[in-house]
Amino acid sequence: MKSCIFAYKHKAILPSASQSFYDNMKEPNQHTFEDQFQARIDAEERIEPKDWMPEKYRKTLIRQISQHAHSEIVGMLPEGNWVTRAPSLRRKVALLAKVQDEAGHGLYLYGAAETLGAERDDLLDELHTGKAKYSSIFNYPTLSWADIGAIGWLVDGAAIMNQVPLCRCSYGPYARAMVRVCKEESFHQRQGYEIMLTLARGSEAQKQMAQDALNRWWWPSLMMFGPSDKDSKHTAQSMAWKIKRFTNDELRQRFVDITAPQAEFLGLTIPDEDLRYNAETGHYEFGAINWDEFWQVVSGDGPCNRQRLKARRKAHEEGAWVRDAAVAYAEKRRQRKAAAAQQQQVA
């Protein structure tokens, strides 16, 4: 049973000592610090919250970790959409547990961002105002039960591809969060594939449902790896800092190589006429990605961007009185305890 005590206001673990040290630092020393920092990275040392780090490294990580956290939370919505309609009690339990895992991932990740001095409230504000991004895949609708299978198989599958290398990320708290997350994601992936397998082995209608889901989720899944390397503005620096270990295109290729045979095993057709195995390279070649669609969804105009943000904002706004009450009650309790202690002293 996970802890359910009201644990909202985490104290951010601010690297206070080294932070003031950094603030007082004079320009000429900057290079030395950055060189030493890079040397540690090159030696595969883990950077911990209290260690000195370049401001850009901190900012890059906060951006990436919070985007990741938001993706977990927004990602609960398309799948949550089928929790009340899951076709059997066994599936209902499994889906609920899965979506709950995603909430847990969000929690660890917000926690990891807080070790860098970010506040969860501020990060949530950025999500709610549309300033922060989250994975564009979650802006697509879940229209049938097969979509739950397709998301587990493809979306969790792609997430694993992205996240396994993050377990070796140079920033310690992020890397450690990813180790936990990856274990659960691979369970989700197998579960999703098993749903697809059941449908693919089922009636004609079920098979069609599975094929339709694959048709809709395939290309958005490939887009999950982000823009192609030549258009990715953060890749080079992130690789040098060992936040990233592989480029977007490398990871995307690996995903296609693993997933294409799985689709074949299911007896389903990947919606790409150009998809073929190249025996010489040992890789699958695949067709051109519609980057216009990618940028459209990323910039807020995908099929469900508005609904997703609206749902998150609504939950947050309607929950305000609950959070306020919990804070007020905790304060009352503290005061009552203090008063009781004082009375005891008097007596």
Partner: peptide, 12 residues
Amino acid sequence: CGHGPILEQDIA
């Protein structure tokens, strides 16, 4: 699920 007043209570 996914709409709780706060993440911890969503999980709970």
